[in-house]
Nucleic acid binder design. Structure first.
Lengths: 215, 215
DNA sequence: CTTTTAACACCTAGGTGTAAAATT
DNA sequence: AATTTTACACCTAGGTGTTAAAAG
């Protein structure tokens, strides 16, 4: 029943909003498939290890704490979801995002136009209209309770300020640098409402008790 | 240009709200008079030391972070304003409550019925209707940048968790106990919407670089 | 002289991976 | 054997009164 922050966090830039209109921006995390995975150490790969039915659960929505906010303000800043918390506790009552361990997931970002018809700050699920949703291939991740991949561990230690105590000022740095070259998202992800499509340019996203999928 | 939390913080209990209706609850701090004060140490008293015109400033509103919320939820819990921050910086751009040092002030609590006509989460000033305001005589305080009254200092050290490092486990305890007997607010203040009046029963309220008024 | 500012040691509060223990 | 939980040392982040220096 652990609950930890998602790290790296999802960070997005938005353009094409109406400056004076009010928007909510939210994130949720949806299953990529219905498979359960296990990590095969000697081949450094995630392998299918069973099936899971996710169809009866609706994902929880994390509303960005700045919501609601004008399109102008949203577009002026990088929108960071660094306080999102994940848990594997299905009975969680703190509103955190509930995921099953050893499964693949992908975050989605939702931009919701304010509408006086629904209760704006009490949103528990997505409204039927006035929503645009985006997701990014490179933010896919696999959930774990213990790290399987030492490269991910090193990346987390080096990039997460709260893990500074585990940093080795010595030669580990080279290993991390190598991983970062292949780490797809370094700068904020980009959402363009004029194009109405997901234009990814890198950024950061993943989760806490989590390793990336590929090996 | 200091900005510190208000301590003790204002804590209220509410009754008489409509359970299913949505409300904002907010606090602001208004001048008690137009006088500037100085503390006369030998007589342990605040004396008038000048005049100030507060008429051209509208006080800033601090909206309780749980807002908006149903009447049922508001009534079920103690409503604590322990994150309110005060500053003497008139140019403050962080939204903190701006006060002048060496003046007397009194907090006000506002209960605001949700209304689709105004932009609910962007409230900068009080709406013209649908608001009920309460204040409590015993929460009056005088602002300072350095404590004038050693009893207040001792009370803060003993009651504020963040000041634990200054606590003296020895004989100071007796002094504080004596002050607490005369300290008027120990339990949450009470707002009754059926009576539409301020029914005070003690509680806690004051401010950060602040001493109480009386000697 | 009175009042304010800034640096400081000392706290609370909470986010890390780790390693051992517990669970399945 | 694989996975999860728990206690832990070590961090970040930020709230205290104190003190000396600065400002008025």
């Amino acid at each position: 029943s652990a609950r930890r922050r998602m790290f790296p966090s999802v960070r997005v830039k938005v353009k094409g909003l109406e400056p004076l209109k009010q928007y909510y921006i939210a994130i949720d995390v949806v299953p990529v498939d219905s498979k359960r995975y296990r990590y095969v150490y000697h081949s450094s790969q995630w392998m299918v290890a069973g099936n899971t039915d996710h169809s009866c659960i609706t994902p929880r929505l994390y509303i960005h704490p700045d919501s609601p906010c004008s399109g102008e303000t949203w577009m002026r800043q990088i929108i960071s979801f660094d306080r999102v918390k994940l848990t594997n506790n299905e009975m969680d009552d703190k509103g955190h995002i509930i995921l099953q361990s050893m499964h693949k997931y992908k975050p989605r970002v939702h931009v919701i136009a304010q509408d006086s018809r629904f209760d704006l700050a009490q949103i528990q699920s997505l409204p039927a209209e006035g929503v645009q949703s985006f997701s990014f291939q490179e933010t896919e991740f696999t959930t774990v309770t213990a790290y399987q991949n030492q490269q991910i561990t090193k990346l987390k230690i080096d990039r997460n300020p709260f893990a500074k105590g585990f940093r080795d000022p010595g030669r580990n740095r080279g290993v991390l640098d190598g991983l970062l070259e292949t780490y797809p998202w370094r700068s904020p992800l980009a959402l363009d409402f004029k194009a109405f499509g997901a234009d990814s340019q890198g950024g950061s996203s993943s989760s806490s008790p989590v390793t990336s999928s590929g090996g």
